[in-house]
Simulated assay, not measured.
Amino acid sequence: MSNQNINFSFESGEAKTILYIGNKLSAHGKTPTGVETLGLKLGEFNYRVITTSSKKNKWFRLIDMLFSIIRNRSSVNVVLIDTYSTQNFYYAFLCGLMCRLLGLPYYPILHGGNLFHRVEKSPRMSRLLFKNAKRNIAPSRYMYDFFVKKGFQNTVCIPNYIDLANYPFKERSTVAAKLLWVRSFKEIYHPMMAIAVAHLLKTKGYKVSLCMVGPVIENDTYRKCVELAQTMNIDVRFTGRLSKPEWTALSQEYDVFINTTHVDNFPVSVLEAMALGMPVVSTNVGGIPFFIEHGENGLLCPDSDAATMAQQMIRLIANPILTAQISRAGRLTAEEYDWERIKSKWKGLQV
């Protein structure tokens, strides 16, 4: 089954301690990740949760992760490992290896739409990491289906979640070309497509405003976005990284959320936008169609197809009834992923 509770099978009288390994880098200006957010939530179940690591240097962080496993091996019952597709995959692999050497059950929590490519690119390391895990925890049905097809039958699906109370609903019906984009400035998220969409709308006579929220990293992708906006004469508001309360407050100034990614799994930012009542127009990639139904709770377009995304925007502007329907349906979808509902899938911790 794809959705089932996690049962860590603590023996009676054992110390119920979880070691959660991931990148705790919010203190260094990074967006909080699962180790910081889910780690706190698991504490609600009256377990002792140890989290690591907050070391800024990548090598020091890896060493800290490995030594945390060794240091806590006698008191820890299970180890949760945030697992990504890039260099952090090697962190997860080495932490999984350490857990196996010490006889500790570990649970990789699967993140990132590009993890599929990592499994294809590194099949042997993936088998060692995922086959030997107690369970692999997939945050979407899309990820779950992929892992099961690859032979990792020890995979369960526990969806991403939001705290719904933090997202005040504002129904949108009559909308303008006021676009909000929230993501990191990385090529796989294709931020330049958002600027291209704004340009197409502007050439069709619409007054456009585009706000792009995400950590401003001086990389090629960010520089290309700035240059493209200047070339196309699009006034883009680059806010830099904002906290969730900051960008959800900012969302009240915008009407439509656009998601332009090449690759995706189950993006929480899209779910948050739906909770806020923003109609979502997204590329139809990865796990997106598993929770957005075109014309019902969002609008979809092919990957890299700025023209179709602009057409979907115009469709919303021209059709207030459809827009209001999508706004309300998006909120209903988001309600399904409220922590108060999702936490039951982690209740197996309460043994």
Rank of each mutant, 00 (worst) to 15 (best):
M1N: 11
S2F: 09
S2P: 15
S2I: 09
N3V: 08
N3Q: 08
N3R: 13
N3G: 03
I6F: 15
F10G: 14
G13V: 02
A15P: 13
T17G: 05
T17Q: 09
L19P: 12
L19G: 04
L19V: 05
G22P: 04
N23Y: 14
E36D: 06
T37L: 11
L38N: 06
L38K: 06
G39E: 04
L40I: 07
K41A: 04
G43P: 01
N46I: 02
N46E: 13
N46Y: 09
R48M: 06
R48I: 03
V49P: 02
S54L: 07
N57Y: 09
W59H: 10
D64I: 06
D64A: 14
M65E: 12
S68L: 05
S74T: 13
V79T: 03
V79K: 00
D82E: 10
S85Y: 13
Y91F: 15
Y91G: 05
L97P: 04
M98H: 07
M98D: 11
C99E: 02
L110E: 03
G112W: 00
G113Q: 11
G113M: 09
H117R: 12
P123W: 02
R127Y: 15
L129D: 00
L129N: 03
A133S: 14
R135Y: 07
S140T: 13
S140A: 15
R141E: 14
R141Y: 06
Y142D: 03
Y144D: 03
V148Y: 04
V148G: 08
T155Q: 11
V156T: 12
C157H: 15
L164C: 00
L164T: 01
N166M: 03
N166D: 15
N166A: 10
P168F: 00
F169G: 03
E171G: 05
R172Y: 03
T174Y: 06
V175R: 09
W181T: 00
V182G: 05
K186P: 02
I188D: 08
A196I: 00
L200H: 11
C211K: 13
V213W: 07
V213G: 05
V216M: 15
D220L: 12
C225V: 04
E227C: 13
E227Y: 06
A229I: 12
T231R: 15
M232P: 04
I234N: 08
I234E: 07
G240V: 10
R241N: 08
S243V: 01
A249E: 12
A249N: 13
L250T: 07
Y254R: 02
F257V: 04
I258N: 08
I258R: 08
D264K: 10
A275E: 00
A275Y: 02
A275S: 11
L276Y: 01
G277N: 06
V280T: 06
V280R: 05
V280W: 04
V281H: 08
V281A: 04
G286Y: 05
I292F: 10
I292C: 02
H294V: 01
L300P: 00
L300H: 01
S304V: 12
A306F: 09
A306L: 00
A307L: 10
T308P: 00
T308G: 08
Q311E: 14
Q311K: 07
M313I: 09
A318G: 08
A318P: 01
N319P: 01
P320R: 10
A324C: 03
I326Q: 07
I326N: 08
S327Q: 03
A334W: 02
E335F: 06
D338T: 04
W339H: 07
W339T: 04
E340I: 07
R341S: 09
K345G: 13
W346L: 02
W346C: 04
L349H: 11
Q350M: 15
